[in-house]
Computed example of a mutant assay.
Amino acid sequence: MPDKSQSSDAEVIARSKIGQHVTYFALGITAMFGLVAILVSISIKDADAKERFGYVKDILAIVLPLVGTWVGTVLAFYFSRENFVAAAQQTTDLVSKLTPEQRLQSIAVTEVMLDMYASTTTKLVLTSANDAEKFKLKKDIVSEILEKQNRNRLPIVDDAGRILFVLHRSIIDQFLVKCAETGGALLADATLKDLLEAENLKTIFQAFAIVGRNSKLITVKEAMDGNPNCSDAFVTEDGTKGSKAVGWITNEVVREKILT
Rank of each mutant, 00 (worst) to 15 (best):
I44D: 13
K45H: 12
D46V: 14
A47H: 07
D48Y: 10
K50R: 13
K50C: 01
E51W: 15
E51G: 07
E51K: 15
F53C: 11
V56W: 05
K57C: 08
I59G: 05
L60Y: 05
A61H: 06
A61T: 06
I62C: 10
I62V: 11
L64F: 13
V67D: 11
G68Q: 12
G68N: 11
G68R: 08
T69A: 11
T69R: 01
W70P: 00
V71L: 07
G72N: 12
T73E: 05
T73H: 05
T73F: 06
V74D: 11
A76Y: 10
F79Y: 06
F79R: 06
R81L: 07
E82N: 00
N83A: 10
N83L: 10
A86N: 09
A86C: 06
A88F: 01
Q90E: 12
T91C: 02
T92D: 11
D93L: 03
K97A: 09
T99P: 02
P100W: 02
P100L: 04
E101L: 10
L104A: 02
I107V: 08
I107A: 04
I107E: 01
T110H: 04
E111M: 07
E111R: 11
M116W: 04
Y117S: 10
Y117C: 02
A118S: 12
S119T: 07
T121C: 10
T121A: 07
K123I: 02
T127Y: 00
T127D: 04
S128V: 03
S128M: 04
N130E: 15
D131L: 10
A132P: 08
E133Q: 15
K134Q: 09
K134Y: 03
K136C: 00
D140L: 04
V142T: 03
K148G: 01
Q149I: 01
N150M: 13
R153Q: 09
R153N: 06
D158S: 13
D158Y: 08
D158E: 13
D158T: 14
D159Y: 06
